[in-house]
Computed example of a mutant assay.
Amino acid sequence: MADIKKNIAVLILAAGSSSRMGRPKQLLPWKDTTLLGTILKKSKLSCPTEIVVVLGAYAERIKSEIEKDEYILLVNKNWESGLGGSLAFGITHILENRKGLDGVLVLLGDQPFVDEDFIETMIKTFYENEKGIVATSYGKKVGVPALFSRDYFNELIGLDGDSGAKFLLQEYEDDIIPLTAGTVTLDIDTPQDYEQLKSRY
């Protein structure tokens, strides 16, 4: 797997304003780091070609907390346009600077239960099957984390608004391998979410 994984880039979306949280949830303490630091650490263990982080709100504050030499940090000045715009922004940068990729793995900066085992499973499943998307199962729906083959790069670039990759995942349902993820699907949006998850884990 070590050689194969050199053709996968990781794109972490962390541009939101955390309006329901009331403070930057990217920087909320989690174990020995932060929410964003946790997903950075876990994604790094998968040895991707590169890791790109899209920031927006609180960009300068978050950048001061990240080892800049290890990751590519982008600031989407139009982050308020929504998740889809940040996703397109990040994919555009990756394609302009990295050729020959097999796929891009899209992660969110507020899902601390995504671990290296799940990332490894997504990549392994991607290379062992002919379908173009590996996505996380949320019961009757699928979502991110999701790994898209290069066949979808142009469509990812065309995304806008707050739907993120939801449209593509609905449109190309027959080309998706869903992975059951358990607690991986938990994210943190409110102070109550944060306190409950801290007490449980």
Rank of each mutant, 00 (worst) to 15 (best):
Asp151Arg: 04
Leu101Trp: 13
Glu155Val: 09
Gln170Cys: 09
Asp189Asn: 15
Glu128Cys: 09
Phe118Tyr: 11
Ile133Ser: 06
Asp117Trp: 06
Ile123Gly: 00
Thr180Arg: 13
Pro145His: 10
Lys99His: 10
Gln170Thr: 12
Lys140Ser: 14
Asp117Pro: 02
Gln111Asn: 08
Gln192Lys: 14
Phe113Trp: 10
Gln170Ile: 07
Leu105Met: 13
Ile188Ser: 00
Gln111Cys: 06
Leu197His: 03
Ser163Trp: 02
Asp162Glu: 15
Lys141Glu: 10
Glu173Asp: 11
Leu197Asn: 05
Ser163Leu: 15
Leu179Ile: 14
Glu116Cys: 04
Glu116Lys: 13
Ile157Ala: 08
Ser199Val: 14
Lys166Glu: 15
Gly182Asn: 07
Gly182Val: 07
Ser163Ala: 14
Thr121Trp: 02
Leu147Lys: 04
Phe167Met: 11
Ile177Lys: 08
Glu128Asn: 12
Ala165Thr: 12
Leu156Val: 09
Gly158Asp: 15
Arg150Glu: 09
Ile123Trp: 04
Glu195Gln: 14
Gly100Leu: 08
Asn97Gly: 03
Val114Cys: 14
Ser199Gly: 11
Val144Tyr: 11
Ile157Ser: 10
Arg150Thr: 00
Tyr172Val: 09
Ile119Lys: 05
Asp175Gln: 05
Ile176Glu: 05
Val134Met: 06
Asp110Lys: 06
Asp151Gln: 13
Arg200Cys: 05
Lys99Trp: 01
Leu95Ile: 06
Gly158Leu: 15
Lys166Tyr: 10
Thr185Asn: 00
Arg200Trp: 11
Arg98Lys: 15
Asp117Leu: 00
Leu168Cys: 09
Gly158Ile: 07
Leu101Ile: 13
Arg200Ile: 10
Leu159Val: 05
Val144Ser: 11
Met122Pro: 08
Glu195Met: 06
Ile176Gly: 11
Thr180Ser: 14
Thr180Trp: 04
Glu171Ile: 03
Lys131Cys: 00
Gly139Arg: 10
Leu147Glu: 01
Ile177Asp: 02
Ile176Asn: 04
Gly132Thr: 05
Tyr127Glu: 00
Ala146Tyr: 03
Thr121Phe: 00
Thr185Met: 09
Tyr172Leu: 12
Pro191His: 12
Thr136Lys: 02
Met122Lys: 09
Leu168Tyr: 01
Phe118Ala: 04
Thr125Ser: 07
Leu159Ala: 03
Lys166Phe: 08
Asn154His: 11
Ile176Ser: 01
Asp115Tyr: 05
Gly109Gln: 04
Lys166Arg: 13
Gly143Lys: 04
Asp187Phe: 12
Asp160Ser: 14
Leu107Val: 11
Tyr152Lys: 02
Pro145Gly: 00
Ile133Lys: 03
Met122Ser: 06
Thr121Tyr: 00
Met122Gly: 06
Ile119Phe: 07
Glu171His: 10
Asp174Ser: 15
Pro178Ala: 14
Asp174Met: 13
Thr125His: 04
Val106Lys: 13
Asp175Gly: 06
Ile133Gln: 02
